[in-house]
């Protein structure tokens, strides 16, 4: 398990990243850029929370693969269904 200092640093980072998402849409970024940037920030936040707060980096790799499979299933459903109506 990480120590309190690491947890605190990650918390600060998470707050900064959340603010970043807001900034993308409140200032004059192109819509596509704002979406792309926000997705990147969201993925970074999710990886930080899962990796350090949920300690996924310390668990057996198989747990990460299982969760990645679940996420893949969602992408499969959403992308295929979305493509089907294009």
């Amino acid at each position: 398990m990480a120590n309190l200092r690491t947890y605190t640093l990650i918390y600060i980072l998470l707050v900064a990243l959340a603010t970043g998402k807001f900034v993308f849409f409140e200032f004059n970024f192109a819509y596509a850029t704002a979406i792309g940037g926000t997705i990147l920030l969201a993925i970074t936040k999710i990886l930080l929370i899962a990796g350090y707060y949920q300690h996924l980096i310390e668990e057996p790799r198989a747990i990460s693969y299982m969760m990645a499979t679940a996420v893949f299933m969602v992408f499969l459903l959403v992308i295929a269904a979305g493509y089907s109506i294009q």
Binding site: M66, M67, A70, V71, V74
Partner: peptide, 8 residues
């Protein structure tokens, strides 16, 4: 993992 699908 199952809840990921529900929310997803």
């Amino acid at each position: 993992a199952s809840d990921v699908i529900v929310f997803g």
